[in-house]
Design a protein around this nucleic acid. Sequence first.
DNA 1: AATCCGGGGGT
DNA 2: ACCCCAGGATT
Length: 375
Amino acid sequence: MSKTDADLRLAPPPRRLQAVARRLLAWYSQHARDLPWRRTRDPYAIWISEIMLQQTQVDTVRPYYLRWLAAFPTLETLATAPQDEVLRLWEGLGYYSRAHNLQRAARQVRERFDGRLPSSMEDLLSLPGIGAYTAAAIASIAFDRDVAVLDGNVKRVLARLFLYEGDVKSPNGMRQLQALADRLLPSGRASEHNQAVMDLGATICTPRRPACDRCPLQTLCEARATGRQEVLPIAQRRAKTPERRADIGVILWNDRVLLEKRSERLLGGLWAFPALNATSLEETASEAALRQKLKALLGRVPGEPKLLLAEIKHTYTHFRLVARAWLYTPQEPVQAAGLGAITDAMAWVRLCDLAGYPMGRVDRRIASALLSQST
DNA sequence: AATCCGGGGGT
DNA sequence: ACCCCAGGATT
């Protein structure tokens, strides 16, 4: 294995690490944020918060966390909840596999660990949805284990503090920084220490325009000393997202609309209006092609679209979607053929019940447009 | 190692 | 328009 120049410099002496850790704890004792999941020692509640906080900011998570704990106060209530209810409470947070994995893990904990969340890294890592970061966070915060977390905040703080100029998102960068985080961890104080580094990254050592003048580590920071705090950490840029188009069918029959339950990985388990997605980047989806799909679903043609209900642009992680939602109001009864095709993955849903069906952003906005239009 | 997976917030 | 976020799973 070859080490890069960036790696070679990443070996601060123990004395300096100690000084950093000491100042961090002192700062945290005065400036810790008051967060709902810091008012509990319940491992289940801490687990929920950590899953919600994956790739999601504190202010976004806060209301979801409170609502979730009210609906599912214990691991047992989560394990036995209907999937639609779990997804409904997750709706809007994104990365819906997190919600699926939470419930799968809750059921595994019931079977394998007597209903109590395990405290060892090995057992935590064996649960779905729990990776290196989350296992370390739960082990340290809920169980006071001496393990160091490494998340986006920690990577940024360490890269600046110790002038790490490698790619912090590469496997090698992760390895180097995890080793450094491990060395920095003061024994017996993992919970406070980990949260201190993350709070510092979230409030002082921010991605842009860090507030070095308020930083407890300003005199110990190599990036600050060399004026590099705005350019570190270095991470590879993501490619530009392509654009895709879709035509979406809103079939209104009496006071009901047809929904499908998605089985794809994207938005899996959520309900959606029947859609025809363009298969290639250049191809334009068309209302005519959508009508063919709807005919297959209904067993008959849905008729001409009554109107273009909405045009919605939405950005996902890897593409931008431009979607047109067409409203169809078939005159002939569709239930004879339609209900024959109804499975667990399809439903004719009353307009007043739409809120109870978990959906992604695009379909929820279509549902809102439909509700405001039909009143 | 690269790609997929959402949605919101900040600049 | 672009980057970031208390990342993990899959290929």
